[in-house]
Write a protein that binds this DNA or RNA. Structure first.
Lengths: 204, 204
DNA sequence: GTCTATAGCCAGATAGAC
DNA sequence: GTCTATCTGGCTATAGAC
């Protein structure tokens, strides 16, 4: 039974489904478990969402729609590269600390089902590198930053921000930290990551 | 039916199981599918490995034991930080291009089953940061590299190397690349990533 | 060791009463 | 809209012949 103030049943179900799907994946999740968590009957899941597959897709799209605006922020606003990196890193890590299962869920299910991405790409609002690419290329040309392709820089930014959450158990094991220490590491990264990137690309 | 020259049935099964488990995960994999791929009867899987769970654990340990030595290389050899980063990046990316499902598989199943890591940590040969930490701290103290904690540096190295493979579908979608372009991007990273890291940390 | 047949269970989906 | 009961199929695992 999730938080009391879900307006309607549909939302109540969606929230329960989110929790279960995000922690167990499509194939590991059980409709019964979702029903229990939502505090309703299993038959109602089918009444509202018809099938497990459709319920899953609703959850997935919802999850992705939370993430996409975060990316668009870095790609499409008008600030300098350096500011973009600082803002994105700090905002993104703050955001993920609140939704820790999100990136792993999306990555996981896209790997199982790469054709999903085609549907997502149709939506306007799907992150697009065009503007960012122009900006990076210009800054390189003007000598503001060291030569780097926009694609590689973008991959690096994503990697440094997202990976530590996706690989949490691995990282905790390697660095021999408990949950509290891990949290501190991630807090530090809100500024560390931006510095790391900017140090690397800025011209000397 | 996998490559003809599996010495014995056990290995033949293990190889088939590896393929299926790595692409579908524990809960998504079907024993029948593994049997088909191995070209043998479903009952034989149980004869050799008793249960799906045990077969899975065999595959998982096997996968992890491929990855661990790669990490130990960077953590425990005697070269300089800069050389370590260069060697690791180039070797690791070469290695993963050959085993693309590996990191995702390990990360995925550890997230579902964080207690797995406890068993792995018991093995000697489990990657350990102690030596790397001493080296980084000394280099920082001597002013060879900019101040950074060994843990954060290690996380960054892992992130930049591993993430692009884990998030392949996402990255292909964002950068609008096909399989061929993606491969080129990854090839470039064999040197790009090391440069990116070294640029960031080396003293000016 | 290898195979066929089947036990036994569990999960998604639906019928139908209320 | 909501619930109970049940159908149906698929999956792991094993019994048992060879």
């Amino acid at each position: 039974m999730s938080k009391a103030k879900d307006k309607n049943k549909e939302e109540q179900i969606l929230n329960a489904a989110k929790t279960i799907f995000q922690s167990k994946g499509m194939s590991g999740a059980r409709m019964q478990e979702i029903a229990d968590k939502a505090g309703i009957n299993k038959a109602m899941l089918h009444y509202y969402y018809r099938s497990k597959q459709l319920l899953f897709e609703a959850v997935f799209k919802n999850a992705f729609s939370l993430l996409a605006p975060q990316l668009n922020a870095i790609l499409n606003d008008d600030s300098s590269i350096e500011e973009k990196i600082k803002n994105f890193t700090s905002n993104y890590i703050t955001f993920i600390i609140k939704h820790p299962y999100l990136p792993n869920f999306i990555i996981q299910e896209l790997n199982r089902n790469p054709e999903f991405i085609l549907k997502l790409k149709e939506d306007k609002g799907f992150p697009n590198l065009d503007k960012f690419k122009i900006q990076v290329d210009e800054d390189v040309k003007k000598g503001f930053i060291k030569p780097i392709s926009a694609e590689q820089l973008f991959i690096n930014i994503l990697a440094l921000n997202i990976f530590p959450f996706v690989a949490k158990p691995l990282i905790m094991a390697f660095t021999n930290t408990d949950d509290k220490n891990y949290k501190e590491l991630m807090e530090d990264r809100k500024t560390e990551v931006a510095n790391f990137i900017i140090n690397s690309i800025k011209s000397t």
